[in-house]
Amino acid sequence: MTYVVTESCIRCKYTDCVDVCPVDCFREGPNFLVIDPDECIDCTLCVAECPAEAIFAEDDVVASQHHFIALNAELAKQWKPIIESKAPPVDADEWRDVKDKLQHLER
């Protein structure tokens, strides 16, 4: 099992999770983070650190978000690792509770 970043992260991209990851499994896109399933060791540390509550164990991802399992794996192969936290986008708090953000995902 691996952990998965879901839709709530889009346009928020808080990076608190990055600092606690012992294996540097996060990958950074323009407005979203993903977890590389080949690197994740299922430690759960990132889950509590995510202000947007966007990270779930693969088995706990709700049905409407299942496509994010494959999306994390796909984008992890394309995006570069992020190993230090950064400031979130200036409008991150405004996007935090917005639903249906997939169309805003920048690849």
Rank of each mutant, 00 (worst) to 15 (best):
N72W: 00
T44M: 12
A57N: 01
E106A: 09
D59A: 14
K77A: 15
V47K: 10
C40K: 02
F26W: 02
N31M: 08
A87Q: 12
D100G: 01
H66L: 09
Y3D: 10
T2I: 01
G29C: 11
D100I: 04
F56E: 02
R27T: 00
D24R: 13
E28A: 11
Q65P: 04
H67R: 09
I10N: 14
R11A: 10
S8G: 14
C17W: 03
R107K: 15
P22D: 14
A48Q: 14
T6D: 05
E106P: 10
E84L: 01
H67Q: 12
E94I: 11
L102T: 13
D38S: 07
A76W: 06
G29D: 13
A87R: 10
A48H: 14
L45Q: 14
C17F: 06
A54R: 05
W95N: 14
V23S: 07
F56W: 10
R11L: 14
D100T: 04
N31F: 05
P81R: 08
C17H: 08
D38P: 00
L105P: 15
P88F: 01
A92E: 15
I10K: 06
E94R: 11
N31R: 05
V4Q: 01
P37L: 04
A52W: 05
T6P: 07
S64W: 01
I69K: 07
Q65E: 09
E58N: 01
E53C: 10
V23E: 04
M1Q: 05
K99N: 05
I69W: 03
E53P: 03
N72K: 01
Q78D: 05
C40W: 07
F26V: 02
F32R: 14
A57R: 03
C50P: 02
D59F: 02
Y3H: 15
P51L: 15
R96E: 15
C40L: 04
C40I: 02
V18Q: 03
D24S: 10
I82T: 11
D91M: 06
A52I: 06
